[in-house]
Design a protein around this nucleic acid. Structure first.
Length: 393
RNA sequence: GGGGGCGUAGCUCAAUUUGGUUAGAGCAUCAGAUUGUCGAUCUGAGGGUUGCGGGUUCAAGUCCCGUCGCUCCCG
């Protein structure tokens, strides 16, 4: 699927040859730090800013890969930790890698599992050597090292691998966050070393910046991560329950310090409104469970804000979810019918609203890329926010 | 015709034995939360003339009388 970006805008390079780099900067917005770029992977290129639907267990919940392709999705996220637990890396290896296993031909970014250690595993011990904890699935003890996590992602056939990081909770003390930064750097060096072994790695490798809300720790983490040298850089440890302004401040202040010739990835974000301010700050990649999770819980993202289709006010509403949306769900089904499906707990409801939500995020980011290409990002942002109910972000 | 049981929120039922705060719960309904996943979970709200009428009592869902409805057994 093409992005609709005018071809002339893609050729606006000024003498710099990006052809050997996995990331090319196509165009910068004149008024903000928003930028249009292109990431080359072993499974095709995609343009940035891009939103990656989350397919933790090798499936973007409720959607078939064909449906993701038809809505223009060109890169998705999967989770090495979850796949490591179940079905096991060896089983996916025997199936010819994750792409073939799940029948997704385009790019896959795999998260390492650092977030899962923080969010759902019963942690037993975290040391410089690695993380020892009990599987959330069957309780057995697991010991993850930065090296093993990279090898697992290579076997999966990941296009973009993430280093193992330590993601502290948002209310962690400065000392705890500082320790997480130190350990994440240590792990990053080891991950890089394994990944650099000639002939083994086909993936890009991204480093992860930690530091919580402490800007000096963030800067230190960034500097040290850049010194190690990665194909891209991620801001981690955000959207972990901290107040919104806190997250926004970190992203706005740290993103401009990230290398401009590498993709910048804001992990776990966000809402439609988040996309605008983060892209404005210079972020290129996003992933978030919002479109799929909210879709399964009966809430749709629309141009005017969130629509909770379960609400009784839609019982007889014959209109489509989003008046401006041409997606399959919007062009065929009424809010009344979708509400009925959720009331009956019919799985088609989960599918249809998820489809719309992912379509919404994918097409919104495509629209943003077009706007950057045409030099009117700020205009689009203004227009979008004027229609979007801020109470409903 | 005689005898027994039952009647409490939309539904299924607690509280009746021994009368004693503002009649509770689950489900359903309604609404909210959800940011490197959650078919999950959590939070909050609305909803009652305790079938109806009368009586006893300081006090009745609870005891008494009548009545209506449902149900079971006997004839």
């Amino acid at each position: 699927m093409t992005t609709g970006i005018p071809s002339q805008s893609i050729k606006q390079k000024k003498g710099t040859d990006y052809s050997l780099s996995p990331f090319s900067l196509i165009q910068k917005d004149p008024k903000t730090s928003a930028r249009l770029g292109r990431v080359q992977t072993a499974h095709g290129a995609f343009e940035t800013p891009v939103f990656m639907p989350v397919g933790t267990q090798g499936t973007v919940k409720t959607l078939a890969p064909r449906e993701l392709e038809e809505m223009g999705s060109e890169v998705i996220l999967a989770n090495a930790y979850h796949l490591y637990i179940r079905p096991g890396i060896d089983i996916i290896n025997a199936s010819g890698g994750l792409h073939r296993f799940m029948a997704w031909p385009k790019a896959i970014l795999t998260d390492s599992g650092g977030y899962q250690i923080f969010s759902l595993a019963r942690l037993r011990e975290i040391t410089d050597e690695g993380a020892r904890f009990n599987s959330h699935f069957d309780g057995r003890e697991i010991f993850l090292t930065p090296e093993e996590v990279i090898r697992a992602q290579e076997i999966l056939g990941s296009d973009i691998a993430m280093i193992l990081d330590e993601c502290p909770p948002h209310d962690a003390s400065r000392a705890q966050v500082g320790e997480a930064v130190r350990r994440t750097i240590h792990w990053a060096k080891r991950a890089k070393r394994v990944h650099s072994v000639p002939g083994t790695a086909r993936s890009l490798l991204f480093g992860i910046v930690q530091g919580g809300k402490f800007l000096d720790l963030r800067k230190s983490s960034l500097d040290q991560t850049v010194d190690i040298g990665f194909d891209g850089y991620a801001l981690g440890g955000v959207s972990v329950g901290e107040p919104k302004p806190e997250m926004e401040e970190v992203v706005r202040k740290i993103t401009p310090l990230m290398p401009s010739d590498r993709p910048r990835y804001l992990m776990g974000v966000g809402t439609p409104v988040d996309l605008f301010w983060a892209i404005e700050a210079g972020i290129d990649l996003f992933d978030c469970v919002n479109p799929t999770r909210y879709g399964r819980n009966g809430t749709a993202f629309t141009r005017t804000g969130k629509v909770t289709v379960r609400n009784a006010q839609y019982a007889k509403d014959q209109s489509q979810l989003d008046q401006t949306c041409p997606c399959y769900t919007c062009s065929n089904f009424s809010r009344s019918y979708l509400r009925h499906l959720f009331n009956c707990e019919e799985m088609l409801g989960h599918r249809l609203v998820t489809y719309h939500n992912v379509y919404f995020f994918i097409s919104l980011t495509r629209e943003i890329r077009n706007a950057i290409a045409e030099g009117r990002f700020s205009e689009l942002k203004k227009e979008f926010l004027s229609n979007y109910n801020e109470e409903n972000r």
